[in-house]
Amino acid sequence: MRAARTAYPLKWRIMDALEGVAAAIWPARFRRATPYLMLLPAVLLVGLLVLGLIQIADASLRTLDTTTFQFSDDYSIANFRRALTEPLFLVVAQRSLIAALIVTAVTLVFAFPYAYLMVRTRSPGLRKFLLIALFLPFFIGQVVRAYGWLIILGNQGMVNEALGLVGVAPMRLIYNYPAVLFGLVQYMLPFAVLMLAPALTAIPEELEAAAGSLGANWVRTFIHVVLPLARPGFIGAGVVVLTLSLTDFAVPAILGGGSHDFIANAIYDQFFRTSDQGLGATLALMLVALGSILVGLVFALFGAGTLAMGRSRA
């Protein structure tokens, strides 16, 4: 008996028991459904999101009665009509969209050399430094960072004080559209670098060396080898930066001085300032639609980026 126990240790017995339990809960005949089981949590999460969107859609079709501050029982498209005809919302939507496009372009331009150097450098010290500099901002929230810029760029901030030393009068560096774009680029840069770095890591260095040995200078190598191969990273980073910028709230609120609102700020105003949740829900739906259309366009024009969807099978 003792020999048999040694031959079949306790932990094996436990594993057998666990396997038995697992087989009872999920019999072998269900095995083909196992991948779908794995998908279930994600589907549930997306389902919750969809439920929220359905509620928002329902609210968007109800109008506010300002004599009772209750919402109508009937459905109407009055909120959509307001959202599409009132100049305020068109101005804010246009501003958000243009800012998102500018911020995406500038961020990608700045992020690429950073990511390239971080991936290709032979110096472990430099790589660590770049990684720390990249992750440090993540430990500081967006709002704190935006307030940091107020301190640095304000009328009595460090920059204006430095300018004062050389006789330049204080100038307004914040509370304008460029300040909002600057704040967003600074906020988005780490996201873009993080999305670009894996794509650049996947490019074999030998390809660049081969291009060089065939006579290509670094510009041609960059244009004809690195850029095309880094496209999935650019697209992934671009989509992330574009959608985050389009929907940003804090940076326009803090660095815009109140007169450079984005769509998210207009949504906040409707929900919390005028108590018109119907109109706020309408604007939120339209923002979701705008973001989805933009992402769809990017995917349609350039492919799915790091998702690598649609890649031909070898």
Partner: peptide, 10 residues
């Protein structure tokens, strides 16, 4: 509020 915002955001 909307009118004021429309003027100031324009």
């Amino acid at each position: 509020f909307s009118k004021f915002k429309a003027i100031m955001q324009g």
